[in-house]
Design a protein around this nucleic acid. Structure first.
Lengths: 211, 211, 211, 211
DNA sequence: TATGAATGAGCGTTCATTCAT
DNA sequence: CATGAATGAACGCTCATTCAT
């Protein structure tokens, strides 16, 4: 037993060390990709900043593309999670409250992951066909959610008769552009998330007209 | 005189041939850039498709960047022209009509230049610092126009009190995203420009709510 | 007869035009080669400055190398001529006078052909094996002449016992370096040929020592 | 401690291997540059002769220019060192002895570095502006030394009244040309350094005249 | 004769990935 | 596990020369 523990101990210690290294590489890559973009970042940049040998990098990641993918997943996953929580069942909180809450959570998630947000919003496409597909899958899922929310809204008589698909894209465009403005152009540091959310929601719900 | 005519004939024939070649190269480059993006397109791809020698390419364009720039200018220029025509002088057509007309013209221009539209909407950034600047200049000009239109609208009591800058980005986001949807994801072939325009305007003016 | 004259007239007029063009190309090439060196000068530079089409250049010269060769021959020929005139026959002018006169003539020739002199003195080697051979032939001829002059001098008891070959190279080295100083480093414009000649001769004849 | 030793062992072995490769590349480049000159030598030539992949070259040298520079420095450095050792302080060896010794050492250094000497003496100019400057700096330093030696000689009454600058160039010309003769034209293999030195010194000190 | 568009071999350099130690 | 030397395909670009008109 002692020995087993010892081995387990070793193993887990080793596994932990492995995870630490991996995390360190991810962190460094996150920063550099976010600063320079995918193409302008070289493996050299990453291993130099991580103070790790060339080969070591490939011990933890299959390729440059692989680490980039993994970084974007860090954002895809929580965003998808946040959005998934929208509840359209009867007895759920009122749609408007949910909308506010969701927008808030999305923005908060982006703020918490500014660097990856930059990555996502800048490196929209052009890496390769596979990545383009991944990206459009992600946005496709968001779109589907908005479409379903809009459709429900129309059914409930809250939302005017509109093309749900096209309007979903409008909403998505608002979110993307405002986030680009906040996280890519400005540093993303001093962003007033509340204000951003309020303006986006107002725009989305009522447009620019005075009613 | 006969000789002069002859020479003129020759010169113009040569100049014409030159223009033809140039146009052919531009066309090929337009297609390939639009399909694969800037980075994934090599000079080799272009000259192979154009069935032209390596040196020939450089006879017509200074560099890969130069032909890319020229392609994007094919779209920048007419878009800027279209947008410039907005008339805020007294006695001008009513704002709403102008808006509809402008959106219509912008979309028509994009439809007419689908491939470059793809290029513009996909290659958001990451080519190089110069290009990033060019791109943000372009969008900056659009944004400024929208800001000024919104401010005028607020002054006239047509538009509600909103943050003109942020809202301009919302509008820009709507346009970009809808265009991305129409020209990048779908082929851009069977796009109902009228419908697209109507939906975008409705969304922008009144949001999603039923009033 | 009239017709023949006419034709002759035409032919010679054409031949003259041909020569004029050739000369113009040579002149332009001379200037540019002299300013930028062989490698840094492109055919483009030459035809642009000569305002002549690309193909025209090749109508007059076989290649870049050929025109360069021809330019250097412009200097080789008169220099060889000048040096050939040294007269060691009995009853000839005294050796010292001839030496002074020769040095003077060589320097004058160089001054009159500053641009080619620059070329000769800078582009010592490295163009290709053929050119290297040509160059060493030229210097070989000069060397042989100096060797023979030195040997005669020794026989006549004027010159100390020395290794004629090696010393010939010393003399050549003096000439080359002083000319390099005068024509390459300084513009070659305000060169006091007399003084240069005097110093070189004094150095060659008596060295640096005070006797 | 054992482990440290092991690591040290590894490190030094690796460092040694690195140095070996570097040296091999330098040697190959030295030979080829010396045979063909800078422009006629391509990276391809070097890596083919060194049996090394393209990328490997750039692992050891920044650029073609960088390896060329380094090669020339192999000669610049010891020559500068040798020449620097001239001692004009009171109580120093007599000037003539120092001159003989210096010439001897310079020639020996050149013999020991024949290939680079060829390089130095052939690639007079034309690589690029930077290199031209480097070269003229080097020769400028030599010239300055000779000028100062001549001026001292004049003050001491040993050297006749002459133009020190121009004469320094004469001396430099003698050295360059004789070295060119010995190292570029002849293989540089069977050069009798002593004799060369003696002749050069005799020529420089007393010229060709029998006194 | 004159043109200039076309050619394509060649260049120096980069960088993601592999693998022996 | 960790290393970093080695790889080589690929890149954008140049330029002396050719040739149809």
């Amino acid at each position: 037993m002692r020995r087993a523990t010892k081995i387990d101990g070793r193993v887990s210690r080793a596994a932990k060390a492995r995870e630490t290294r991996r995390a360190a590489l991810l962190q460094v890559a996150r920063r550099i990709f976010s600063q320079k973009g995918y193409h302008a970042t070289s493996i050299d940049d990453i291993i130099a900043a991580a103070e790790v040998a060339r080969g070591t990098f490939y011990l933890y990641f299959e390729s440059k593309r692989a680490i980039f993918d993994e970084l974007l997943d860090e954002l895809f996953t929580p965003i998808a999670e946040v959005v998934r929580r929208i509840d359209v069942s009867p007895g759920a909180p009122p749609p408007h409250d949910q909308m506010v809450a969701t927008v808030d959570r999305v923005l908060t998630t982006l703020v918490e992951n500014r660097e990856i947000a930059r990555l996502l919003l800048r490196e929209a496409v052009g890496i390769d066909a596979d990545f383009d597909r991944k990206l459009s899958d992600f946005y496709g899922r968001l779109e589907a959610l908005i479409v379903s929310a809009l459709s429900t809204g129309i059914d409930m008589g809250l939302v005017r008769e509109l093309d749900p698909q096209l309007t979903a894209r409008c909403v998505l465009g608002v979110v993307k552009e405002v986030c680009h403005y906040a996280f890519v152009e400005r540093d993303g540091a001093d962003v007033d998330v509340r204000k951003l959310g309020r303006e986006m929601i107002a725009f989305t719900l009522t447009g620019i007209f005075k009613h």
